[in-house]
Amino acid sequence: MKPAPFDYVKPASLEEALELRRRHGAESAILAGGQSLVPDFNQRLRSTETVIDINGLSALSSIEESQDMISLGAISRYREIETSALVAEHAPLLKMAIPEIGSPAIRNRGTIGGSVSMADPGAELPACLCALGANFELARAGSKRMIAAQNFFTGRYETALDNDEILTRIDVPKNRVGFRSAFHEIARRKTGYAMCGVAAHGKVTHQSVQNLKMVFFGTDDTPMLAVNTISVIEGCAINDVPPAELDAALSEDLHPSDDTHGSAKLRMHYAKVLTRRVLAQFVSAHGEE
């Protein structure tokens, strides 16, 4: 299939882009890496009147460091993030997750802003950013707002972004001393979305895990912070988390459904398997020191 027709504009500045966004609103689509948007156009799953290409906005492409966070411009490409020394040092979770996204040619183009704006329930980065407690900067003509990652994702392919807004920046708090990250997913095949995955970040000592954020993807409509599971884990010695309680908590936290790649039952089972892998990784990571 070929896309339905649309107009194309490539603003030279963020102001111009926001003005276009204000003018065209719901009748426009932001084009970042295009790795989801253009396939959707090609299959006529989606159409729009005006495509606003934000790839010319150099202000949105930097990866910068400040006192206690690193800021990723919305059009930072997967490849840039994967190879960034800043990311490796301060947000290793992102570096762990990116090789699991698509394939190299996709990662050359796809952007972090596109990934979160797309809000695919099977996507890796939204879950990672929730686990890291990232904040997103959303801009509209004349104003800006910050929103916590956890509040940004509102449904399957749905976010808090308004039609006149552009996601401009993602702030990720720097890794603090003693904090560790773990990332695991289970996919039918290496390339493509996972059936279930988990991003975890917390303070790991030889006794326990604290300040844990454990976020599942592929199970629910949005990245799912497993609050009950976290409290089970935080409440026990790291080596001694009772499996039955863990499983019961996961069953409360997650609400998987059936799709062509796997049933709800399968995804729930995977969540349990992955949770154990995360714990095992935390235990052994701590053992290394």
Binding site: Y8, L31, G34, Q35, V38, P39, N42, V51, D53, R79, P104, A105, I106, N108, R109
Partner: peptide, 9 residues
């Protein structure tokens, strides 16, 4: 860099 020409306008 490699890219998928079907995903680029």
């Amino acid at each position: 860099q490699t890219a998928r020409a079907c995903t680029i306008l």
